[in-house]
Measured scan of single mutants.
Amino acid sequence: KYTPEEIEKLKELRIKHGNDWATIGAALGRSASSVKDRCR
């Protein structure tokens, strides 16, 4: 489950890194597949 803060951070990282899920996941301390599924 993602907190509202994590979702905000995810949005920012998505703008910065696009679909680089590995980088976004690492920044959030989550797996690449987890953040990818969250963005769907």
Rank of each mutant, 00 (worst) to 15 (best):
G25R: 00
I15Y: 05
W21Y: 12
P4Q: 15
K11L: 10
E12M: 12
A26P: 05
T23R: 13
E8K: 08
E6N: 02
K1N: 15
G29Y: 00
L10W: 00
V35K: 00
E12R: 12
R14F: 09
T23Q: 12
G25S: 08
D37H: 11
K16M: 12
C39F: 09
V35R: 00
G25K: 01
K36Q: 14
S34C: 12
S31Y: 00
G29D: 02
I7P: 05
Y2T: 09
S34M: 05
P4I: 14
N19L: 04
A32H: 02
A27L: 11
T3Q: 07
D20G: 02
K36N: 08
A27P: 02
P4S: 14
W21S: 09
I7N: 08
P4T: 14
R40G: 15
I24Y: 01
E5F: 06
S33T: 13
K36V: 06
A22N: 04
E8W: 03
P4W: 10
K1S: 12
A27W: 01
K1L: 07
A27C: 08
E6M: 05
K36W: 06
K11F: 06
K16Y: 04
E5M: 06
P4Y: 07
A27K: 13
R30L: 11
R40A: 15
K16P: 03
I7W: 08
S34A: 10
E8L: 11
D37L: 11
R30D: 10
Y2W: 14
K16G: 05
C39M: 10
A26G: 09
P4C: 13
E6H: 06
K1M: 11
K16H: 09
L28D: 06
D20L: 00
I24W: 00
G25F: 00
I7R: 07
T3N: 11
A32D: 03
S34I: 02
D37Y: 03
R30W: 12
G18I: 00
R40V: 15
K11A: 12
R38A: 15
K9Y: 06
L13T: 09
A27F: 05
P4E: 13
Y2A: 04
K16W: 03
R30G: 07
A27Y: 03
S33F: 06
R14H: 13
K16T: 14
H17G: 02
E12D: 12
R40P: 09
E8M: 10
H17S: 04
E12V: 10
R14G: 02
E12Y: 05
D20T: 01
G25D: 05
S31H: 05
L28G: 05
W21R: 05
P4N: 09
H17N: 03
S31E: 11
D20N: 08
K1F: 14
V35D: 07
L28W: 00
E8S: 13
C39P: 03
R14W: 12
H17D: 06
S33Y: 05
T23L: 11
L10S: 05
K16R: 14
I7L: 14
I7Q: 11
H17E: 03
V35Q: 03
T23I: 09
K36F: 05
E5D: 12
D20R: 00
K11N: 09
E12W: 09
A32L: 04
E12L: 13
A22L: 10
D20H: 02
K9L: 11
S34Y: 07
G25M: 01
E6Q: 08
R38I: 12
R30C: 12
G25V: 00
A22G: 08
R30K: 14
T23W: 02
R38P: 06
A32G: 06
I24V: 06
G25W: 01
N19I: 04
C39Q: 06
R40M: 14
Y2I: 08
E12A: 14
K11V: 11
R40F: 11
R30H: 11
D37A: 15
R30E: 14
V35E: 09
G25T: 02
T3W: 00
K9C: 06
T3E: 01
W21C: 03
N19V: 06
D20P: 01
T3K: 06
E6L: 03
G18Y: 01
L10K: 03
K16Q: 13
K16S: 07
K1Y: 11
P4L: 12
R38K: 13
V35C: 08
K36H: 12
